[in-house]
């Protein structure tokens, strides 16, 4: 892992919105083909980190490298867009409400000047487990899980090497969550993709990822292999607290969850 060029490399990255520091000196390396998790409470900067990589957040300092190439500012070249794609948290907000599924999938192909779009769109739909029947439907005719599958198909249609996943299942029902996670695992196995997965659900991250980083207040508190987290070999108090909170939440939702719903 040390001699190969990392798929993704961040050094001292800062992100600030109007003086508010959302990310503070974040450094991390993700190897090619690795599934890397980012966990932390709300507002800890996990999503901002993904958006900074994608060029959707204002990076004020530090360097970002994708496969050894340095990215500057918020501008990204065409090659970047073909290498790095993202799946957003809310499948109800990430698909254009006035475009058919066909149009949503056609758009990236048209932008990148890809020919023979029709077979590619059908293949992309097939890959995420949606038949050709879904091709000309509008997003409002799909369920949340189906929408998220479309969003994944859209992210994959340019055949990227790195996929940024911003809580891809947190807006979905528990049963659909498992389906989408299985789909993501299967796609990664087939294509050898590099994943950066953001989640507040430690269970999802330990299931999906080889390694993870714990974030708090815009900083990385701890980096550790997923197995260590499961085994409880934890280095910092914050991670322990997060784990206890996560477990406590799970017990609580088993016992009293239905009273609130």
């Amino acid at each position: 892992m040390t001699d190969a060029v990392p798929a993704l490399s961040l050094a001292g990255v800062n992100v600030a919105y109007d003086g508010y520091r959302a990310l503070a000196d974040v450094s991390l390396n993700v190897a090619a083909g690795e599934a890397f998790g980012l966990v932390g409470e709300s507002g800890s900067g996990k999503s901002t980190l993904l958006r900074a990589i994608a060029g959707l957040a204002p990076v004020t300092a530090g360097t970002l490298r994708v496969e050894g190439e340095t990215l500057t500012g918020q501008r990204r070249g065409r090659a970047f867009h073909a290498r790095v794609q993202m799946v957003f948290q809310d499948p109800y907000g990430s698909l254009h409400p006035r475009h058919t599924i066909d149009r949503q999938l056609l758009e990236p192909l048209a932008i990148h000047g890809v020919d023979a779009t029709s077979p590619r769109i059908l293949r992309a739909l097939d890959e995420v487990g949606l038949g050709a029947g879904f091709r000309f439907r509008y997003p409002h005719q799909l369920s949340g899980g189906q929408r998220q599958r479309v969003a994944i198909a859209r992210a994959l249609i340019l055949e990227p090497a790195i996929l940024l996943l911003d809580e891809p299942t947190s807006a979905l029902d528990a049963s659909v969550q498992a389906e989408v996670l299985n789909l993501l695992e299967q796609v990664r196995a087939e294509r050898g993709l590099t994943y950066v997965l953001v989640s507040h659900d430690l269970g999802v991250v330990t299931h999906m990822c080889d390694r993870l980083a714990v974030m708090h207040g815009g900083r990385i508190v701890e980096e550790l292999p997923a197995d260590d987290l499961v085994a409880g070999r934890i280095g910092t108090d914050y991670t322990r607290k997060l784990m206890v909170a996560s477990a406590g939440f799970r017990r609580g939702s088993d016992g009293h969850g239905h009273a609130d719903e």
Binding site: A54, G55, L56, R76, R78, F80, H81, A82, V84, Q85, M86, F88, Q89, D90, G93, S94, L95, H96, P97, R98, H99, E107, P108, I111, H112, A151, R154, L158
Partner: peptide, 24 residues
């Protein structure tokens, strides 16, 4: 998010305004 998504696809600002913002 759908505008961010299309930006991440590499669409030019002109394309985003004409094809994604205007229909809304």
């Amino acid at each position: 998010d759908y505008i961010d998504a299309i930006r991440l696809m590499g669409a030019s600002p002109l394309r985003i305004v004409l094809r994604h913002v205007m229909p809304m």
